[in-house]
């Protein structure tokens, strides 16, 4: 049994550079506090973790179904406000408010899905864009409950110390990313969703013709995407101790797209790379505040110009080579496939 696991590990993780890198990354993530406990560094990484969940959920919803969502901040904001209200007015603790907030975000996702199901392409994008902005109007209209532009303040902390905050965010992030990765894994024998979502994205009509209830899967995508974006929103509210209108901002929705497409859409890990590259970069650029956003935008443009599929996908294509016969991934220096021995050229 153990030997079997070790063997699987050797074959499925160590032999594929992409997965090896992912493994090292997550190990480093959990060991980092041994190296530095500087609160500022940890804060940046906590934000990165939260936004990874947010960006990956966008990739899950939009990348995999081809439904480009311009209003992903809706889920983030709905969950942040729900968590904040439950905490502030009823006194629930973060362990309860964050999941409830995420469930409410699922509700928002399903509601948003109702008109969205009838729409395709740019029409869908534009309708999704409208929702957070409409909600922003509602937030402003009831300042007694929502605090207007000040937001709901003075929430309970995520935990008492920064290190614990960090581990909470890292664990939640790892689990969320893993679940979403599994759900989209087209080769998985356990869950079928991956391959079906791929099918819908490639050709919805063909998928429907093959007897797939595409509506059900689109609903699922909205619900799962909404749930994880909601988790991110709840974490954000409790970490910042405030839920304000900035959580529904148009720019936040755009950020999710920027992070994901930069890293590589339809890949899950692309979003992780995108956030972990761009968020700390943005922080680092604080030393030249005047040029910060300019440099940020310029980097995004330049990288995408040369790697239109995204930076992570570009790197993966360089270091991995799929076997033309058995589709197994191989390290780039191998000339023949590690399983079937077919030539990789």
């Amino acid at each position: 049994m153990l030997r079997r696991l070790v063997k699987d590990f050797q074959g499925d993780v160590l032999a594929i550079p992409g997965r090896l890198i992912a493994l090292i990354f997550f190990l480093l993530l959990f060991l980092l506090p041994l190296i530095t406990q500087e609160p500022y560094t940890l804060r940046i990484l906590i934000f990165a973790n939260i936004f990874v969940i947010f960006a990956v959920s966008w990739d899950f919803l939009s990348g995999y179904t081809g439904q480009v969502n311009f209003g992903h901040a809706l889920f983030f904001g709905v969950a942040a406000y729900t968590a904040a209200m439950l905490n502030k007015y009823i006194g629930l603790q973060p362990w309860a408010t964050i999941p409830i907030g995420a469930i409410v975000a699922v509700g928002a996702g399903v509601l948003m899905c109702l008109p969205a199901l009838r729409l395709r392409g740019p029409y869908l994008s534009l309708v999704t864009l409208a929702f957070p902005l409409i909600l922003l109007g509602v937030v402003k209209a009831f300042p007694d409950v929502t605090g207007g532009e000040h937001g709901i303040t003075g929430l309970t902390r995520l935990s008492e110390s920064r290190i614990t905050d960090y581990y909470i965010s890292a664990v939640v992030m790892t689990i969320s990313v893993f679940i979403m990765w599994k759900l989209t894994d087209a080769r998985s024998a356990l869950v079928r969703t991956g391959i079906i979502l791929h099918a819908i994205r490639e050709d919805e009509i063909a998928a429907r013709a093959s007897g797939i209830n595409t509506i059900r899967y689109k609903l699922l995508a909205f619900a799962v995407g909404g749930f994880f974006a909601g988790i991110a929103g709840g974490l954000f509210a409790h970490f910042m101790r405030i839920a304000g209108p900035s959580t529904l901002d148009l720019m936040l929705s755009f950020q999710a797209i920027i992070w994901t497409v930069f890293g590589g859409i339809v890949s899950i890990y692309g979003a992780v790379v995108g956030v972990y590259f761009l968020y700390p970069l943005m922080e680092f650029l604080r030393v030249i505040p005047e040029l910060r956003i300019l440099i940020f935008a310029a980097i995004v443009i330049v990288i995408l110009l040369f790697m239109p599929e995204g930076i992570a996908v570009w790197i993966r294509d360089k270091i991995e080579r799929a076997c033309p016969r058995c589709k197994l991934s191989n390290v780039w220096w191998r000339r023949t496939c590690r399983a079937c021995g077919a030539s990789l050229y």
């Binding site: 500087e38 609160p39 500022y40 804060r43 940046i44 934000f47 954000f236 910042m240 405030i242 304000g244 900035s246 720019m251 943005m282 922080e283 604080r286 505040p289 910060r292």
Partner: peptide, 23 residues
């Protein structure tokens, strides 16, 4: 000079202050 950029980015504003204090 602590550029909080708070008009555009509330989360970043708090990070900027933490940076000023700890770094």
């Amino acid at each position: 000079k602590v550029d909080s950029d708070e008009i555009r980015d509330v989360a970043g504003a708090a990070s900027a202050v933490e940076r000023a204090i700890t770094v």
